[in-house]
Amino acid sequence: MVISRVNRGLKRMKARAEEKRTKAHPALETIKTRIAERLEAAGLSGREASVRAKLGLTYANDILGGRSLNPTRETLAKLGAVLDTDADYFFGTQETPRLPASNLAPARSNIVAETRIPAATIPLFQIGLTDPDGFFALNADRRSAYSSPLISNRDAFAITVPDDCMAPRYRIGEVVVVSPSKPVVHGGFALVRQTDDRVAIRQIVTISTDKITVRCLNTEGDIDIPRSQVKALERIIGSCELV
């Protein structure tokens, strides 16, 4: 009797799993259209984007080709991190590819004029070449003032992006704004500061007691940095073009 009930339960579970696998998501056509759009915007093939998102070789192409009918929010969020967009955009519940970061929204001069927000001035570090390992120093002799009415964090500072390691999320020559006081979460983007005070822009994959696992978006394979070599993780709260 017990074995029979267990078998029936397993059959029901398998049936539900099969139904979920074969039942198309209601927004599937929107998902397919917007994945294709973001691939074109990023200049990536479906295979390249899938590999960079750590989703295998065919994830994006399986959706586009109708072989995967019910993609999950979790996997679409991973793909979105590579294609500079949010999962809600794929589902059609968000009109623009990416919502503004928490403290750095797109410039809208009419709103700024109406609310008369005072401009905040923060340090801006102009970055030249990186070291062979991708890290770089924040040199005081390459520091200038950067002013924007859209920055409210008193401890924030800005740096120019030195390479395309984090493209398409952050491209060379853009400015990223860093807030040392804001917490860094798994999957977020941060400035990784080593004990020698050299830094690098990376996506934070995991934070454990003995290591920090980070990722570049345009290379394969995650990188483990011993916790003893990491002085701080400082959250990136937004980016914009340098004007």
Results as ranks from 00 to 15, higher is better:
Val112Glu: 11
Val199Ser: 07
Val112Ser: 09
Gly65Lys: 10
Lys211Val: 02
Cys216Lys: 15
Leu69Lys: 14
Val161Gln: 09
Ser109Gln: 10
Arg12Pro: 00
Thr33Ser: 11
Lys182Thr: 08
Pro162Arg: 10
Thr213Leu: 12
Leu124Ile: 01
Ser228Ile: 12
Val176Ala: 04
Arg171Pro: 00
Ser181Phe: 02
Glu114Trp: 14
Ser208Cys: 10
Leu79Asn: 11
Gln194Arg: 15
Met1Glu: 13
Met166Gln: 11
Met1Val: 08
Arg5Gln: 11
Gly46Pro: 03
Pro149Ala: 06
Phe157Glu: 05
Arg52Ser: 00
Arg227Val: 02
Asp210Trp: 07
Leu138Phe: 06
Gln203Lys: 02
Tyr170Phe: 14
Glu174Gly: 06
Lys23Ser: 07
Gly43Cys: 07
His25Val: 00
Glu19Phe: 07
Ser228Phe: 14
Pro180Ala: 12
Ala140His: 04
Leu28Met: 01
Val214Tyr: 15
Arg52Tyr: 05
Pro118Met: 07
Ile201Phe: 05
Met166Asp: 03
Tyr170Ile: 04
Asp133Pro: 10
Asp141Val: 12
Phe125Tyr: 08
Leu55Trp: 10
Asp197Gly: 07
Thr121Asn: 02
Val243Pro: 12
Leu76Gln: 03
Leu242Thr: 01
Asp133Phe: 15
Ser181Gln: 07
Lys14Ser: 10
Ala53Phe: 05
Val199Ile: 13
Asp210Arg: 12
Thr93Pro: 01
Pro100Arg: 01
Gln126Ser: 06
Thr93Gly: 04
Thr96Glu: 11
Leu191Ser: 00
Leu217Met: 08
His186Glu: 08
Ile127His: 07
Ile35Cys: 00
Glu19Met: 03
Ile31Asn: 07
Ser179Lys: 09
Leu138Val: 09
His186Tyr: 05
Ala158Asp: 09
Ala27Pro: 07
Leu191Arg: 07
Leu44Glu: 01
Thr30Ser: 09
Val177Ala: 09
Val112Thr: 13
Ile3Leu: 09
Ala137Tyr: 15
Met1Ala: 12
Ile223Pro: 05
Gln229Cys: 05
Val205Ala: 00
Lys211Gly: 01
Ser147His: 11
Gly187Met: 00
Gly221Arg: 13
Ile237Lys: 05
Arg16Cys: 01
Glu174Cys: 04
Ala113Met: 15
Arg47His: 10
Gly128Gln: 01
Gly238Ile: 14
Arg73Met: 05
Glu74Ala: 10
Leu76His: 06
Glu19Leu: 03
Glu18Asn: 07
Arg227Leu: 11
